[in-house]
Design a protein around this nucleic acid. Sequence first.
RNA 1: GACCCCAUCGUCUAGUGGUUAGGACACCGCCCUCUCAAGGCGGGAACGGGGGUUCAAGUCCCCCUGGGGUCGCCA
Length: 465
Amino acid sequence: MIVTRFAPSPTGYLHIGGLRTALYSFLWARRNGGKFLLRIEDTDLARNSKEAAEAIVEAFKWVGLTHDGDILYQSERFDIYKSYVQKLLDTGKAYKCYMSKEELDALRVEQMAKKERTRYDGRYRDFTGTPPLGVEPVIRIKAPLDGQISFVDGVKGEVTFNAKDMLDDFIIARSDGTPTYNFVVTIDDALMGVTEVIRGDDHLSNTPKQIVVYEALGFKIPRFHHVPMILNPEGKKLSKRDGATDVMEYQKEGYLSETLLNFLIRLGWSHGDQEIFSLEEMQAFFDPCDINKSASAYNKEKLLWLNTHYIKTLPAERLIKELKFFGVDISLHNKKIEIIDALRERAKTIKEFAAMVEQIITVPQAYDEGAVAKFLSGNAMDILEMYLQALHKESTIENASAFEQFTKAFLEEKGLKLKDLAQSIRIAMVGSAVSPSIFEILAIIGYDKVKQRIQKLISYKRSLS
RNA sequence: GACCCCAUCGUCUAGUGGUUAGGACACCGCCCUCUCAAGGCGGGAACGGGGGUUCAAGUCCCCCUGGGGUCGCCA
């Protein structure tokens, strides 16, 4: 069985790079009927891991990723790690090192001066003497001194490191007894039964260290897939400064979860020329071996385009639900479908969408000055007043095509063109010179309120002169 | 600096020795048009450089260059 995992450190939120590897891991597990596990890497004491886990679960929930089983917290597993440290100590595969931090720093400075690689020199590896007083030792693992460590990476292919220039006897337990990252990662992955590790390629050079631990403990080494990082538009590693790295930030900006997932999966992975993927299709097609070797830059135009695509194509009910996030509830509006269909091709984000809906369903409190100056000059107001009078003669007008029929008849009778009237109506209805087709707008607003809004604009114009 | 990884339009990518190097976003032009969009049609735009191998190289090999990552008692 394929078992994958997502193992974030608790930074308080889920960033998009993390979501991408989580998505890949999720898809690969689901495609194979396997398991997708979640583990919080909180061995660094101080931080609040519960809060971080909640943030991740919230983000997962938003985009529709589900993990199997309970969330594992490394902070709750220290006893397990300690027993493995002891095991290594007992078998002579690890040892106590009494070198102080000051001595270690001095060694590094010296090595840098000689332009050598900074590394622990192994001075306590075979130490049998009396340990110095007052130094709490760290535990170091015995790493191979020479030879090579190589593995086949699902993304990069065969990767080989020379032990002498990648490895040293690295610390697996600090002087306070707490275990370190490269040690606990391998223990947890092994104990959780993880068969495929999909993670960022910033971990590629950690892998040989972890392989040392796997081998020392006799664990089976999983298959690794190191996915290239997401770069910012300048080609550098994506950082908080590049904005909206928090997944939930995208919701606040009006992006749909479908958009984000589609965007992320297509960044560094492809399935022929296909651009649009449903979650089902992602599950059917995704294979980590098809992930690109090279890093890819974050491109917000494509993200926006995807969002417009999903806004155009998702069911109206779904969009109505999304609008509520921005405080616009039209679920009980008798023209809700018409509202959605009139606006869905114009909104790039749900946030924009909400603002547009708001503009239609509320009476304009102000009129765009530029629009008024440009379109309500000459005899525009006279035409609008005649239109109002004609409207009053009707008992009601039901829908968009009826409004169109009525309006065209009116224009023909007066010898006018739609151009002579459209912008005035638009300003009266929504207060600006931009909106969907006026006939759709009129139908949505409804016969009685249409008359009121036209009257309001007329009164407003009169009050100016 | 050492080690590792990477390299096709501005961006995301297709390409697995023989292609007019394809698609998408963005950009530009035209059409449609009651505004703004959307849509339709069309356009410009790429194999980083140099050596090999081969009848044939974007595709294989080497070097260079460029970019990225890692070198913690962080994860």
